[in-house]
Structures are given as structure tokens and as C-alpha cells.
Design a protein around this nucleic acid. Structure first.
Lengths: 145, 145
DNA sequence: ACCACTTTCTTCCACTTCTTTCCACTAAGA
DNA sequence: TCTTAGTGGAAAGAAGTGGAAGAAAGTGGT
């Protein structure tokens, strides 16, 4: 389970420093390979290879549909297999770097099974624009929040 | 069950001293790990790790929804796993320290299953601005209040 | 078609900065 | 006075960063 925000940076070469905590977990649970992609072109999603393969398997079994084709189209357009080096850095494909403006300060968010990489300022602005309301929380119906 | 207000301080390094009473309860009921996060960026919420995991599980089972996505986006943006040291202090992430102005005197409030950490003066002002009304209390439908 | 040169990519080393942990002192309450 | 809570700070270790050297891929010319 990945959780929380680990602020980090993308250097001028386009390398993302995977925060040490996430790196440790990935090292022990998965290999150094990831599938980096995006569903909206606005922020990158980083799946440990094994997780992505699990999703692919589930999709392969699903009946053919427009939604499936669309999903494959988008995720494979932005997608690429990337590998962490010994220093815990990985090269973000140029296309994603441009579309998701991944340079300088970025937020790496744990989203349970995968990680989200977002431009910090943009993500912040998006949260401010669309805040979490009491009604949202009530809608979840979870006790003790 | 956490209850009451235990005023404490955040030092210049951003370390929150967990009041001894809360520390004792946490030590016996839970481990030293917490998930610290925020829903509005204005005050921090401190969940014993086990409590937070319970919420995560409940969320994982809930059907996909906008409210759920928003909730994960916000809580993981502000969130971080933190650990108390032997002296009962824990480091508040920079982002939260800034947004929620957690420095100097703060109030630690027991909110049943979790703790709230708020800038004392700000919290006071907010209560004054938005007081508890008879209508609020009636809406609870609890006998004997 | 092959060779050589150029350019880009990748990996690894070494330095710097920040974080974390732990020790010791101060203050307050019993 | 003794014990427990709270505070500050220094030292050791870990994390982050830049860059240089080696490898690989691409390009052009003979």
C-alpha cells in the first residue's frame, strides 16, 4: 500500500528521484521496473511492473469494448517501461514531461497500488479549486473520518 | 477514545511534542506510527496507523466515485506516515506546517478515533466565527445533551 | 555494405546537504 | 527531593545531487 506525499524533484535531464521511502518498499516488494503512463495527460502514474501486468491480464480477459480500446489507446500512448538506477532515479519520457509539466518540484503521491507524479504547483491549484467538502465525506459513508 | 484539549508546542525544527497523556494511550493501544494528514489544509489530523488502515480498507471496498477520488487526492497530498521518537515527539511535514501554520502553541484535540492538531489562535477564531447552534445540537438526535 | 565518426543515452562515483537519532539539561509536579 | 515531562542541540548516518566516463545508437561517407 503506497500512501502519503513525498515531495521530490525532476532534474534538468528529466530524471525523477524516487523518494527513499517509496524506493525501499519497491525494492523489497517489486523489481526496479515500472510502467509509467497517464490517463489524462495531466499527471503521470507509476505502476510497479507486476501491478501493471495484473491490470493487463484483467483487461485481456474482459470482453472487447469501446472503453477498453480507449483505455489501451491512452495508456499506451503515454506509457513506457522505465527502470530505476542504483541511486533511485528514473527517466521520465519526454512526452509526459511536457504534457504533465514534470520539471522541478513535483509531488509523488501514494495511491494505494500505484504512485502519482504531479507538478506540485498545479496539483495544489487543482485542490484549491475543487476542495473536499463535508458532503463529499458524508457520501463516503465511512465511520470515524 | 481520545477526548479533550491538550495544549502543546511545535519547536523550530517542526517537531510536535505529543502530550504525555495521549502518548501513554497511544503506546498501549497502538504503535508509534501515525498517519498525519489534512482534509482542508487548515489543520492537521493525526490517525494512529491502525485507524487509518481501517479507513483505507473501507474505502478500497467502496465503489469508485468522484468523492472517493477527491478524498484520496487530498489526504494523500497532505499525508505522510510519521513516527514518534522515544521522547514522544513527531516531525510534522513541512507542507502541513506551512499551510496549517503549525508552529509555537498548538491545540491537540481528541476527536474520538483520531487527534486534531491546530494552531491555537486560529482555531479559537474559527470557533468564534462559526459557533455551535441549538439547531446543530438538535440535528444530532442524541438524548441528554 | 561496411567503417568511422558524432552524438545521445546510461550508469556510476563522489560530494554536499539534510534528516534522524540520541544524549543531556531544565523545569515542573508529586 | 525525587521522578516524570519537556526542550535543545550535536553527531552520525542517510538521502539527494551533479557531473564525468563509458557504452550504445545513429548518421554519413566512401
Amino acid at each position: 500500500m503506497f500512501r502519503g506525499n513525498h515531495p521530490t524533484r525532476v532534474d534538468e535531464k528529466g530524471r525523477l528521484k524516487v523518494p527513499a521511502e517509496f524506493k525501499r518498499r519497491v525494492d523489497e516488494l517489486y523489481g526496479p521496473q515500472f510502467f509509467i503512463t497517464s490517463k489524462d495527460g495531466k499527471r503521470a502514474e507509476l505502476y510497479p511492473m507486476k501491478e501493471w501486468e495484473r491490470i493487463e491480464d484483467a483487461l485481456a480477459k474482459a470482453p472487447s469494448s469501446g472503453a477498453k480500446k480507449k483505455f489501451l489507446d491512452v495508456t499506451n500512448y503515454y506509457g513506457q517501461v522505465v527502470e530505476m538506477d542504483a541511486q533511485g532515479r528514473l527517466l521520465i519520457p519526454q512526452l509526459l514531461r511536457e504534457d504533465a509539466t514534470l520539471a522541478g518540484d513535483v509531488a509523488v503521491l501514494g495511491m494505494q497500488t500505484y504512485l502519482v507524479v504531479a507538478n506540485d504547483a498545479k496539483h495544489r491549484a487543482q485542490l484549491a479549486e475543487n476542495p473536499l467538502t463535508d458532503a463529499d465525506i458524508d457520501a463516503l459513508g465511512v465511520v470515524g473520518i
